[in-house]
């Protein structure tokens, strides 16, 4: 479905790289990018990280483009909005419609925000596309994030994929019965879908708890960490 990112994270050249290194590099560079707030540095980061993602991690170009496209579409709209509706100061350009003008201030806001996002997105992409969630959670666990949070997150991660399969099946069943034919119908179908999923999830959680208990679960899922293949 739409979880291509999870698949990519498990299948690229950097999957086996030390997750601590990737996590800290991402956080460090994110803070640096925000702190410098420099247009050239933003572009520099964008280029470097794109090269890392495409050439080093060998993620195919189309997936990367897909990852960038949705946030990029938003950021373009938003920054146009910032440029035209905000700010005071010297008027640079008059549109002549409803007195909407571009001013030095608003241009500054719009341009800086745009490039900040341009710089930060590939960084998020670097972490999200090369590191499986389970590894990130494992990192966080050794970094003293409370164990209960990690446990719940891991169980959650597993159940998400079970739900996705069920939703897919149910939605197809509803569609073949014209469940999304009209606006009100789709509301009813969506409600039925969501509540059925919730009820099923309750049953699932019971089963999950029983199976965990019967295998001696004490609040820790032991993870086997394979030796790195040289």
């Amino acid at each position: 479905m739409k979880f291509d990112m999870d698949y990519i994270a498990h299948h690229n050249e950097l999957t086996e790289t030390n997750p601590y290194f990737k996590l800290f590099l991402t956080i460090f560079l994110l803070i640096l990018t925000l702190a410098l707030d420099n247009l050239y540095f933003d572009i520099f980061i964008f280029v470097v990280m794109s090269i890392v993602i495409l050439a080093v991690a060998k993620i195919n170009f189309r997936s990367y483009l897909k990852f960038l496209s949705i946030p990029m579409a938003f950021v373009v709209i938003t920054c146009l909005f910032l440029i035209f509706f905000f700010g005071n100061g010297e008027v640079i350009y008059e549109t002549g419609i409803f007195g909407i003008v571009v001013t030095t201030d608003s241009l500054h806001y719009g341009v800086y925000t745009f490039f900040r996002v341009v710089g930060c997105l590939p960084l998020l992409g670097f972490l999200a596309l090369t590191t499986p969630i389970a590894k990130i959670l494992h990192c966080l666990a050794t970094l003293k994030v409370p164990r209960i949070v990690i446990e719940i997150a891991l169980l959650m991660y597993n159940s998400i994929f079970i739900f996705l399969n069920e939703i897919d099946t149910m939605q197809k069943a509803q569609e073949t019965r014209l469940g999304y034919h009209s606006y009100w119908n789709s509301f009813k179908s969506l409600g039925a879908l969501a509540s059925t999923i919730f009820l099923r999830s309750l049953d699932k959680s019971e089963t999950l708890q029983h199976s965990l208990d019967s295998r001696g679960y004490t609040g820790e899922l032991p993870i086997y960490e394979p030796q790195k293949r040289e």
Binding site: L155, M156, S201, L202, S205, Q209
Partner: peptide, 26 residues
Amino acid sequence: ESKALLAVSGAFMFILSSLKLPSVTG
């Protein structure tokens, strides 16, 4: 036994919120 319930409810929240619609302003 509430741990599994919490986890599954969290997953439910995630699924609900992944049905997204676009709007302006980032």
